[in-house]
């Protein structure tokens, strides 16, 4: 007999041997919480959307004071308004993609939809990082082009400090802080992806490759 026929015969024979789960046990099971990755992607995504939206509200008052000094307020408000519109758009897209996920789809389509949903949130995060970098660069250019006002702001009591040094330290601190923040965000995404999507992405690629 062919080995595969032997396997099939054995497989069928064993099919009748599984210990059966009772009605009550099934009842209990369906009232338990799912631990599926789609659920986790949903929770994490909502948390991220909230985080990046809230971060604007959490900025301390002093940040706005410095913008006032440089007449950057109107620019700031325009960018905030645009930001809200884009945020709402992203939330809508995320919700639409999430709702389209259907476990009864074929495997390839299901994976495509999960990856698309996750990508929406990633784009939102990239958008926020890009915005953050652009604002940081523009504002720094404006601030450093008017060093007198900046020195006045950084040294309000006019203590005897070397002004050039003060400017240099400010600049270095801004860069270090910016790079550090990007590093933390990058690490966070590596971990989230590593945990949740590595297996799914691998399987999706395998199916995709099969089609060529």
């Amino acid at each position: 007999m062919d080995e595969l026929d032997l396997l099939k015969k054995d497989w069928k024979k064993r099919s009748a041997d599984y210990p059966q789960v009772s009605y009550n046990e099934i009842y209990k099971m369906i009232h338990k919480k799912s631990s599926s990755i789609v659920k986790w992607i949903f929770i994490i995504s909502i948390a991220e959307l909230l985080f990046w939206t809230l971060i604007d509200f959490l900025a301390p008052e002093s940040v706005y004071k410095i913008y006032e000094k440089f007449n950057l307020n109107s620019l700031l408000y325009i960018s905030l308004t645009v930001n809200y519109v884009i945020t709402i758009l992203f939330i809508y897209l995320f919700y639409k993609n999430y709702k389209s996920i259907c476990i009864a789809d074929d495997t390839s389509l299901l994976m495509k939809k999960i990856i698309k949903t996750r990508k929406t949130v990633n784009y939102y995060v990239f958008y926020n990082i890009a915005l953050y970098i652009i604002i940081l660069i523009v504002f720094n250019i404006v601030m450093f082009s008017k060093p007198d006002i900046l020195i006045e702001f950084m040294n309000p009591n006019n203590k005897p400090i070397d002004n050039d040094k003060l400017l240099l330290i400010t600049l270095i601190l801004q860069i270090v802080f910016g790079v550090l923040m990007l590093g933390v965000i990058w690490l966070y995404y590596r971990i989230i992806y590593g945990i949740l999507l590595r297996r799914l992405t691998k399987n999706y690629k395998e199916l995709e490759n099969m089609e060529f």
């Binding site: 631990s35 599926s36 990755i37 789609v38 476990i103 009864a104 789809d105 074929d106 495997t107 299901l110 994976m111 999960i114 945990i195 949740l196 297996r199 799914l200 399987n203």
Partner: peptide, 12 residues
């Protein structure tokens, strides 16, 4: 379908 989908895509 749902059994396989869960095993392949959703389950960790």
């Amino acid at each position: 379908r749902i059994g396989l989908n869960t095993a392949i895509t959703l389950y960790r």
